[in-house]
């Protein structure tokens, strides 16, 4: 009796979509950005039900007059002046025109060592590259997991 052989996960890769370098780079930088996040979850305060009529509502004014009054308080001035995120501050510094060394020039240059490769599923050293997305894998088992969970999509 002929036992039907399971299709090779590796060979069928030829028919799959292949991501270009730019997309792969974008995916990588999105992953790296995620590693900079303070929290993965939403602020627990924001998930509270909308405040009832008794709760103090934020005072958004529609008329001009109270707006002007508010501007004068120190707190408001403070917020306007000091509320900037990192990217805005970096831009404001205008470092390209400033003499080195500065924040940008102090960044360690790329390593001269060749990159090492690890299986993106189990983390052990890997020898193979997923033809579709460029992710690394170490064995067929990990390749299948990778296909199901991460390749061309990002579950989690």
């Amino acid at each position: 009796m002929v036992v039907e052989k399971k299709n090779s996960a590796r060979v069928e890769a030829g028919q799959r979509r292949v991501l270009d370098d730019a997309t792969r780079q974008r995916r990588l930088s999105r992953q790296l950005e995620a590693l900079e996040k303070d929290n993965f979850q939403d602020d627990p305060l924001s998930s509270l039900p909308a405040p009832g009529p008794t709760a103090r509502l934020p005072a958004f004014s529609e008329t001009e007059e109270p707006e002007k009054k508010k501007r004068k308080t120190r707190g408001d001035h403070f917020k306007l002046r000091f509320r900037k995120n990192f990217t805005a501050l970096l831009e404001e510094e205008n470092l390209a025109d400033k003499p080195e060394p500065n924040y940008l020039s102090a960044l360690a240059p790329p390593s001269s060592l060749p990159p090492r490769h690890f299986c993106c599923v189990c983390g052990f050293p890997s020898n193979y590259t997923c033809t579709t997305c460029g992710g690394r894998y170490c064995c067929v088992k990990c390749l299948i997991t990778h296909r199901e969970t991460r390749c061309l999509k990002w579950t989690l």
């Binding site: 960044l107 060592l113 690890f118 983390g123």
Partner: peptide
């Protein structure tokens, strides 16, 4: 298992997760 030392390894080889910078000894 490998998580125990693969994570601090980023300090020595940032390129392991695709950060194109030198590790501490090289820097």
């Amino acid at each position: 298992a490998n998580e125990r030392f693969a994570v601090p390894e980023m300090l020595f080889h940032p390129s392991d997760i695709g950060i194109q910078e030198m590790g501490i000894p090289e820097a």
